[in-house]
Design a protein around this nucleic acid. Structure first.
Lengths: 152, 152
DNA sequence: CTTTATTTGCAAATGATTTGCGATAGGCCG
DNA sequence: CGGCCTATCGCAAATCATTTGCAAATAAAG
């Protein structure tokens, strides 16, 4: 858990510059987010934050998420379950692999896939603005990790 | 518009075999779907079908879509706007490119990307069950279709 | 410490999708 | 063809996640 205070400070500066305020609840939510290494949804964030401040309301969480997203401090994702999940944006771009059994989210990135996407879009006459790539998978029995053969 | 009746007949057989019934509304919705080459949502399907049968209800559309999906007759997608969109499933696998300006959906498929996905998943110890790949793009001025350079 | 515009909490409003229930109608039998 | 039985339908009410109106609370600036 290092760097959280700095991150909060940076965000506060951005807020100020946008004419917004750094409130107790925003500070708290920011902290909860920085301490999370998973992809919690609004209710999850609310629950964790509520433990520190029982006066916090769920709508404040939603409103704060929107502000954070607008400021580029977090990223919002909507996986198959439909709800919005969030993660702080201080990391490089990546996509997600979701374990269909446990719901666990694994991050990965592939320049090759990105390049292919750009190529495909270009062939169709488009340039990519953004994309969404989610793999839903099941853990393989350890041992045949390297065989990517056609035994699907 | 050919083959629709056959498609409906095939589906009717599948239904029967599952102990379900082929009703007027299911027939109608199936027809509307077969005649659509876009990716309509429940409301859109309802509107088109309602024009042929003003007694149809929206809940019936939702219920029917679930049945159709369970029977494997259609595929359901949820793009960024959140609503479920449907398309008939009698075509080979493909992904989607959504025009961010017009909302138009273009279909494409890329064996290379599929292969890369499988490879990445395998490296992480997973085998892919399914995936979701959506490109959100903007139409390029015709002329530089082939240049996929770094002029983003 | 006062002022003032931003935020908050709460409750009510949305919007998409689902569901309970009584009425309707397919599919099957005779 | 006439009925029976259960699947399905239409409708209204219920969910669920998320948003919003409004009055009270509170940052931030002077």
């Amino acid at each position: 858990m290092k760097g959280i205070d700095q991150r909060v400070a940076v965000f506060e500066a951005e807020l100020r510059q946008a004419g917004l305020r750094m409130t107790q609840q925003r500070r708290l939510i920011l902290r909860v987010l920085a301490e999370s290494d998973d992809h919690p949804d609004a209710k999850g964030i609310f629950t964790r934050a509520f433990a520190h401040d029982p006066t916090l309301s769920l709508s404040t969480v939603y409103r704060t998420m929107k502000v954070l997203e607008t400021q580029g401090a977090i990223e919002r994702h909507a996986f198959e379950d439909g709800v919005s999940r969030y993660e702080h944006a201080d990391q490089q771009h990546h996509d997600h692999l979701i374990d269909v059994e446990t719901g666990k989210v694994v991050e990965f990135s592939s320049p090759e896939i990105e390049a292919l996407q750009a190529k495909i879009a270009a062939e169709l006459g488009y340039e990519i603005v953004r994309h969404r790539l989610e793999l839903y998978g099941r853990k393989m029995p350890a041992g045949r990790r390297k065989s990517i053969k056609k035994n699907a």
